[in-house]
Design a binder for these strands. Structure first.
Lengths: 114, 114
DNA sequence: TGCTTATATAAGCAGATTATTATATATTAA
DNA sequence: TTAATATATAATAATCTGCTTATATAAGCA
């Protein structure tokens, strides 16, 4: 298999970043749908600052990207990242998390796709 | 792509485990060659207890396996592990580390393959 | 303009992590 | 049996992490 290679220290950094169930789930969700912070707050039942801090780490590492849309800041996977092939490959081993956003929609709490 | 799936919390655990440059390098080396603790001590220029403790984490998670051979305990990747497909996939994104063992051989410090 | 909502940032603290030193155990060889 | 080598384990100290609370910033709306 021919795949893109990431320097070992950088790869360890990415794995450490994703080695947290909240961030890993976030990234898996973002792999299928863009999301804003308040949606993650609902999904994870965590405080807004806690979510913001997780997202910041993902952003600082270049794994996600932000885009303001009015009041909201929409996050998405940064597909041009050097790490994207590695991350993508990894996400393939995780069960789909779409049900989490489905639940939000049913509660009328979905923002990004309205 | 059809791949084996790992529960998200468990996957995060594995990624956290591998999110350390020493352990990640160890696993990449073990992907190509079995090794004993004293070789890792040489390779990483770290204390023996530090190496032992890293290896123990890998062993506790079921990522590596040990086999005593006389005085030495030889470690190898545990290919039957549920996590092996994920780990293997991940290792494909890392540059080869064979040169590290080559250096040991040149210094006459290689154990496992004598 | 001032209020509300969404998000970010900063400070602080508790628990986790990773190294160190000291010591124990197991195997081999003299 | 004793000494040497390889490894593991325990205690501990320093650093890192991930939350909390408090506060700042930015956009939308009355």
């Amino acid at each position: 298999m021919k795949v893109s290679t990431v320097e070992i220290v950088k790869a360890a950094g990415i794995l450490k970043l994703l080695g947290d169930k909240t961030r890993l789930t976030m990234v898996k969700i973002l792999d299928a749908n863009d999301c804003c912070v308040c949606e993650f707050v609902e999904i994870f039942k965590m405080s807004q600052p806690a979510i913001s801090q997780h997202i910041r780490k993902l952003k600082d590492a270049g794994v996600v990207r932000e885009a303001r849309r009015g009041q909201w800041i929409i996050y998405s996977l940064k597909k041009e990242s050097d790490y994207y092939p590695l991350v993508q490959n990894l996400l393939n081993h995780l069960p789909n998390q779409d049900f989490k956003l489905k639940e939000l929609e049913e509660q009328g709490l979905r923002i990004s796709c309205e």
